[in-house]
């Protein structure tokens, strides 16, 4: 049984009949040039944007899953959030437990995991962009949902938090959760199980990073030339 199935997912002018399947425990990256449909695909997969075609989570059609249960089965992290009201960081992360009857389980751990414990009582509308991003990720983590859909989760993060986020995504996948996230930094693609390449709203390639990210694809889709060269490598101590 697949964790996520998309069948001919279509959104006019944005996504043209994308089909893909992810097995449970997969760490998958979604890449593609700007405007290639990454965010749209994630929104359709998360059920927050309806389009033509079918979406299924764990083999169950999305249409047959009630709203509350969806909150337990999948978590979606938007590319950016603006918070109009001054909820505390802890309160926003605790919203991840809404579908679990607000039991508050795992909230403290999620805060700690994203270095937010010290900020727990700060209002979210007073945070920096990177801090807001971490709050959204912590909320998604707190849901404990088996399917995690993150839209450019690391774009606003500093190098250390980005690396830790990536490490966490890997741990979740090893633990059986399925993580699909979009990214622009192709240099981290090598630590993914699967890379999915979108181009002009269509699926261009999907598979292990070494097989997918060939020199031809990088040239044709991204318009860049790949070259191995000594450079700055960043990793967690």
């Amino acid at each position: 049984m697949n964790a996520l199935d998309l069948t001919a997912a279509t959104v006019p002018d944005r996504l043209a009949g994308v089909s893909l399947a992810l097995a449970p425990g997969t760490l998958a990256g979604l890449v593609g040039p700007n405007g290639s449909g990454k965010s749209t695909l994630l929104q359709v997969a998360a059920g927050v944007l309806s389009g033509a075609g079918d979406v299924a989570w764990g083999g169950r059609p999305l249409a047959a899953i009630p709203a509350l249960e969806r909150g337990r089965l999948a978590a979606w992290v938007p590319q950016e959030a603006h918070f109009e009201f001054g909820f505390t960081v802890a309160a926003v992360v605790a919203q991840g437990r809404f579908a679990h009857g607000d039991d508050g389980r795992g909230v403290a751990e999620a805060l700690a995991r994203f270095d937010l414990t010290a900020l727990a009582e700060r209002p979210v509308n007073r945070l920096s962009g990177g801090e807001r991003q971490r709050v959204l990720l912590a909320r998604a983590l707190a849901t404990g949902a088996p399917l995690q859909l993150w839209d450019e989760p690391f774009a606003a993060l500093d190098p250390r938090h980005a690396l830790e986020g990536l490490k966490l995504a890997g741990e979740l996948a090893r633990g059986g959760q399925t993580v699909l996230f979009s990214l622009h930094d192709l240099r981290v693609a090598h630590c993914l199980d699967v890379v999915i390449v979108l181009h002009e709203g269509g699926l261009c390639a999907a598979g292990p990073p070494d097989e997918v990210l060939t020199a031809e694809l990088l040239r044709d889709v991204f318009g860049v030339r790949a070259r191995n060269a000594p450079g700055l490598i960043l990793e967690l101590p």
């Binding site: 927050v48 944007l49 969806r70 999948a74 979606w76 926003v92 919203q95 991840g96 849901t143």
Partner: peptide, 10 residues
């Protein structure tokens, strides 16, 4: 805090 986020949270 956002309609789409609320929907995804249940």
């Amino acid at each position: 805090l956002g309609a789409a986020e609320a929907q995804s949270l249940g």
